[in-house]
């Protein structure tokens, strides 16, 4: 790897980092606006035209708020919690293939930070790390509500990770690779994995809701029971980081879903349009982002439709329904593969 490669990779990392931050920032705006439309309201409309500057105002407010660290809390861990939450949220984007290659002169630019051959495993590792931010923050607060929220988050994430992993196994049986780049390349044109794995996708998306702590599985921050859940004691930008991490997680899991089930940067008839490969790549990036934004919208759509699960129902669904379904999915996939190969 030469110097140019390193510089190009650094630029790519910064660009992807900025994109995920901006998308997360405007997800907060979109969430408020979409929630308003679902409820026949207008939503934020004062800061700038159509309230477009609302995230900036929110961020400024978060930074200017008084920062309170409870006297009886573990101060170091209290700060580590939100830092860990936002860090693990941000590093997930490293293995996602954002597009094919761009040819600039003789240089071939690969629109993926790194193509490790265990990409999906990496994503799972990062996602499981995310729960530490919530747990450490909730525990360090020295508050029973925070602790309850943290315990819920931990048990919920562990339960749903199993079903998520099992649903992925069926996918890996058909793709035969863990590399996200190859998985995306295999779904050329219309051969999206969701067509072959509809049940697996259903289980995966339900688990994604649980992993990102989104409604209807937002029990860790269940405000009707737990005040604010794990971030009850947090204020200022530390609270902001927790909320922000949720939106980045949503962006990353939307990107993962789009990549492994909805063809990533592939779109129908991508090579019969007669365009040069650079244009196909650019259109592919746009297609990927369209899919990602659809999933983000879907996350919000579900949030403003479905009420929150009760805790025992949550565990019931995870252990008694999703895990058996995922195992059945593996078995069916195996049988079909054996019969038709």
């Amino acid at each position: 790897m030469g110097t140019t490669d390193i510089i190009v990779k650094l630029i790519l990392i910064v660009v992807i980092f900025l994109i995920s931050l901006v998308v997360a920032m405007y997800s907060t705006y979109a969430e408020r606006k979409i929630a308003a439309f679902f409820q026949d309201r207008l939503g934020p409309s004062r800061a700038g035209p159509f309230g477009i500057l609302q995230p900036v105002a929110d961020g400024t407010k978060m930074f200017l708020k008084e920062e309170i660290i409870p006297a009886n809390s573990s101060k170091f861990l209290f700060i580590v919690g939100p830092s860990l939450a936002i860090m693990t949220a941000c590093i997930g984007s490293a293995v996602i293939p954002w597009g094919q290659t761009l040819k600039i002169g003789t240089y071939v630019l690969d629109l993926q930070v790194t193509d490790i051959n265990v990409g999906i495993l990496y994503i799972f590792g990062v996602v499981s790390l995310g729960v530490y931010g919530v747990m450490i923050g909730g525990w360090a607060s020295n508050n029973k509500y925070s602790l309850l929220g943290a315990i819920r988050a931990a048990s919920q994430n562990i339960s749903y990770e199993i079903a998520m992993g099992l649903s992925i196994i069926a996918l890996l049986m058909t793709t035969g690779t863990l590399s996200l780049k190859e998985i995306a390349a295999q779904q050329h044109g219309w051969h999206w994995n969701v067509v072959y794995q509809p049940l697996g996708f259903l289980i995966f998306i339900i688990c994604a809701f649980a992993e990102t702590n989104r409604s209807p599985f937002d029990l860790p921050e269940c405000e009707t029971e737990l005040v604010g859940g794990y971030h009850t004691e947090y204020s200022s930008m530390k609270l902001g980081f927790y909320l922000f991490a949720e939106y980045i997680n949503m962006f990353i899991s939307s990107a993962v879903m789009a990549t492994i089930y909805f063809g990533g940067y592939n779109f129908p008839f991508m090579h019969s349009l007669g365009l040069s490969s650079n244009w196909v790549t650019i259109l592919g990036v746009i297609a990927l982002f369209a899919k990602i934004f659809f999933f983000i919208f879907f996350f919000m759509w579900v949030r403003w439709t479905i009420p929150r699960f009760r805790y025992d129902q949550l565990m019931d669904l995870g252990w008694k329904t999703l895990i058996p379904l995922a195992i059945a999915n593996i078995v069916i996939t195996g049988i079909v593969m054996t019969l038709f190969k």
Binding site: A36, F38, R41, L42, T305, I306
Partner: peptide
Amino acid sequence: IVKGMGITLKHFLFTKAVT
């Protein structure tokens, strides 16, 4: 759930804001 989401989508697309 699908039925409920249909209802909310109707509000999202067609109902005018009462604000």
